[in-house]
Design a protein around this nucleic acid. Structure first.
Length: 475
RNA sequence: GGCGCCGUGGCCAAGUGGUAAGGCAGAGGUUUGCAAAACCUUUAUCACCGGUUCGAAUCCGGUCGGCGCCUCCA
């Protein structure tokens, strides 16, 4: 039985999907006003692992991830860059989706965008006005927080404790400082959509209610996002959605991942404390980054340091090595793997405890290596390692096929191809070199053999000799 | 001021009542022409104080220290 921690109920509860074998999962995506950073990757990786585990458990997951592609930040940034807001949003959305691919993250079932959902958004706002949860005011529409008596239940705020110090920006006419905008009247020069209240655009929060209800219905199983969204975003989303549908709870589970820390500060747009996904992938692989993320529980803040990432990269390589080991004339009792699958499942069932699940992976790797040393059959264990690693989304792929643009050798390869127009792959030449080196070693001409290894090492290619031959990898 | 989280070996990180998973790093050893990899061995009483209990890292109270949210943010 899968248990997940629900932010609203403040405890782990069993997941019992509303629709039998089908789970609806709505994950708050990004506001694409800047390039995707490592915090986005962390978030996406965590929900990818959750989704993969749900699917491995036999559930069919309907996974919706939205893009809030119109909002103040986008407009401001687009103005700075002197490009249309839509162009900025599209560029960053594309960039983000590309990053997800590089990280081996499964695509969502749908990626709705706020700008494509205006009729739904307007319909929800109209419904809220009808039910007296919202009121129009000078071309804006506000949600009247004090009309929703359980407002604050998600974030644990009492409405009277909330700092009503929140100033009312000029031009806004709210009944109460805590009220938030559902619809914002367009200022001159801003992008706008037609609405019953005039030209304007949706406020932040309403798009998620509209998209979640539109794609998944009035009630959903799991709603996810970063912990920074608990208040006000998800609090407001609950107020809107439950106010509109009259049904509760809007989501059975509210899952929030802790935020990535950089040094002693959280990684955030406001502090400019950012590392881009591209930057990180210069120094590790998709698996390395994934292991880094999975090595800590998703509700614990993860502190980014280059050393920690390096450690995870080394660990990922260890898993890969065990996964691709070849049996060499094995005999005797095969390595038995009775408990591992269950241990792994138990760990993930317990609120997605990836650190414990990963420990199972490393235990398997050690057993496989040991069996290899003892010349015992280990194929079955290896298949299990691959299966379980895949549940967490590890590719176990060879870095040399991944780092095509990075290794000096691959650069050489590219230049060679371009300059000579030859089709031969330099990799073939490497294998020829290795063949010669093999002969040298057989003739015990160690100096020459080592020279080849050293020279290749200078080029960023590490050779590893073993009883079954020589392998190489790009460092 | 309000809401909430955290403090486990050199670093990272599980474990929420029965005497501490796993990873990285280090040390010693085995194997290997050497190197690398791998394997074996090895490093903790869980911030501090007090309490509850037969028994606590794990529950309660307090102290110190760090952090998040309350304002845009995954």
């Amino acid at each position: 039985m899968i248990k997940l921690y629900d932010t609203l109920r403040r405890k782990k509860e069993p997941l019992e999907p509303l629709m039998g074998e089908e789970v609806s999962l709505y994950v708050c995506g990004i506001t694409p006003y800047s390039k995707a950073h490592l915090g986005h990757a962390l978030h996406a990786l965590i929900f990818d692992m959750l989704r993969r585990h749900l699917e491995w458990s036999g559930l069919k997951v309907r996974h919706i991830q939205n893009f809030t592609d119109i909002d103040d930040k986008i407009i401001d940034r687009a103005n700075e860059l002197n490009i249309p807001a839509s162009e900025l949003a599209t560029t960053n959305t594309t960039d983000y989706l590309q990053s997800l691919r590089l990280l081996n993250i499964l695509p969502a079932t749908e990626y709705p965008r706020a700008t494509s959902e205006m009729p739904n958004i307007i319909q929800v706002i109209e419904g809220l006005i009808e039910k007296n949860y919202a009121y129009p005011s000078n071309g804006d529409v506000y949600y009247h927080v004090r009309n929703k008596q359980d407002y604050g239940k998600l974030s644990g705020h009492d409405i009277n404790d909330l700092r009503s110090g929140a100033r009312i920006p000029q031009g806004e006419t709210k009944k109460d400082p805590l009220d938030f905008a559902l619809w914002k009247k367009a200022k001159p020069g801003e992008p706008y959509w037609e609405s019953p209240w005039g030209e304007g655009r949706p406020g932040w929060h309403i798009e998620c209610s509209a998209m979640a209800i539109g794609a998944l219905g009035n009630r959903i199983d799991i709603h996810g996002g970063g912990a920074d969204l608990i208040f006000p975003h998800h609090e407001n989303e609950i107020a809107q959605s439950e106010g509109f549908t009259g049904e509760s709870p809007f989501s059975r589970f509210w899952i929030h991942n802790a935020l990535l820390q950089l040094g002693n500060d959280k990684m955030s747009k406001s502090s400019g404390n950012l590392i881009s996904i591209d930057e990180v992938l210069q120094n590790t692989t998709a698996d390395g980054l994934r292991l880094f993320v999975a090595s800590s529980h998703y509700r614990s803040p993860l502190n980014y340091t280059p050393e920690a990432l390096e450690a995870a990269s080394t660990g990922a390589e260890r898993l890969r090595a065990a996964a691709i080991l070849q049996e060499v004339s094995p005999s005797g009792e095969p390595l038995s793997v009775n408990d591992e699958r269950m241990k792994f499942r138990t760990a993930l069932n317990d609120d997605l405890n990836t650190p414990r699940a990963i420990a199972v992976l490393f235990d398997l790797a050690r057993s496989i290596n040991r069996a290899h040393d003892n010349k015992k059959p280990f194929k079955e264990a290896q298949n299990l390692l691959c299966e379980l690693a895949n549940v967490l989304g590890f590719t176990l792929a060879d870095p040399k096929t991944i780092k095509q643009e990075l290794g000096p050798f691959q650069v050489l390869l590219k230049e060679y191809d371009e300059n000579k127009g030859r089709k031969e792959n330099l990799e073939d030449i490497l294998w020829a070199l290795l063949e010669i080196r093999k002969d040298l070693r057989q003739e015990k001409k160690w100096a020459a053999a080592d020279r080849i290894r050293d020279r290749l090492s200078d080029l960023g290619i590490e050779l590893q000799d073993s009883s079954s031959g020589t392998t190489w990898k790009i460092q």
